[in-house]
């Protein structure tokens, strides 16, 4: 398994590494040194992160360290701030009027709350998968190639290679290889969501944010996505927001429990689900509220 993963990384290197180099030129990252031993490092950290929508205080003093190449699940009742936290990591909250945040949120030493941060570059390093599958009304191929085309000019061969690799990683290649030119809207819901994952990893991100990726899918498609997440965690740092506690238990290494804008508890998934330290967590997990 270990070997397999390494060959994968090497194969991915030539075309995907190029944009990475450019990004490191822009920012002489202090995180560069941590790259080698990144398996056990936390390069995505939040400290006393507060966030507001207008007057509404959405996040209270969130402090969390997200481990590299692990799956971290965020659970909690609706409106508790899980998605808000996620959307600050790739700054999708910039689109929301009156959204603001204070505190510290860093990815490899880059301050993600910096007003002058190049969000375009950030979003290339932090991919996002949405709740509802949102394939573009284009062909399957163009969907996956959309991201790479945004950032560089690739030859047709390079694009073919990227698309095939991304689709294989998203476990979709065998199902769509004969209809790459067909509209992505013709795929089933589960296939569409895997296509969105393939699209996100085609630009070569470090972190994948998944905002309830299975809530619009049937159980069978959900299982396939979960298997995919288990596969992808070898290469990507994954944050997944979910309402499905079984799912969190199945796929994640770490679980954080959010409630009313606060991070109540965070710890190893097994620990949280069997032996939570806080009463609210226990209540929520055992279905007493939420």
């Amino acid at each position: 398994m270990q070997n397999n993963k390494h060959t994968h990384r090497v194969a991915a290197a030539p075309s995907l590494q190029q944009p990475d180099h450019r990004s490191s030129e822009v920012r002489p990252a202090s995180g560069e040194s941590s790259d080698e031993s990144s398996e056990f490092h936390c390069t995505l950290t939040a400290e006393n992160l507060n966030a507001w929508y207008g007057d509404f205080h959405a996040l209270h003093d969130i402090t969390i360290e997200i481990p590299n190449r692990r799956v971290t699940a965020l659970i909690g009742p609706s409106g508790c701030g899980k998605s808000t936290f996620l959307r600050w990591i790739n700054r999708m909250n910039d689109l929301v009027p009156k959204a603001r945040a204070a505190g510290r949120l860093e990815l490899r030493g880059t301050d993600l709350l910096d007003r002058l941060l190049d969000v375009v570059d950030l979003r290339r390093r932090v991919g996002m998968v949405f709740q509802k599958p949102n394939p573009f009304p284009k062909s399957v191929f163009d969907n996956v190639a959309f991201g790479p085309r945004l950032h560089s000019r690739y030859s047709r061969n390079q694009l073919d290679e990227i698309v095939e690799r991304s689709l294989r990683q998203a476990a979709l290649w065998d199902e769509v290889k004969d209809r790459l030119g067909k509209s992505a809207l013709q795929l089933s819901g589960g296939q569409q969501q895997r296509l969105c994952i393939a699209r996100a990893i085609a630009v070569g991100p470090d972190v994948l944010l998944m905002d309830e990726p299975c809530s619009a899918l049937d159980p069978k498609s959900t299982r396939r996505i979960e298997e995919l997440i288990a596969e992808l965690r070898k290469q990507y740092t994954i944050l997944i927001v979910t309402h499905n506690m079984q799912q969190a238990a199945r796929v994640s290494d770490l679980t954080g429990f959010f409630c009313e804008g606060r991070l109540v508890e965070v710890g190893l998934t097994g620990h949280i689900f069997t032996n939570p330290t806080r009463k609210e967590t226990e209540d929520y997990i055992s279905g007493r509220f939420g």
Binding site: L95, R123, G127, F130, N134, F136, L150
Partner: peptide, 15 residues
């Protein structure tokens, strides 16, 4: 045009 398309594009790092 659904805003999900817009967000999907922006999330991929499109300007």
């Amino acid at each position: 045009v659904p805003s999900s398309l817009r967000q999907g594009s922006l999330a991929l790092g499109a300007t």
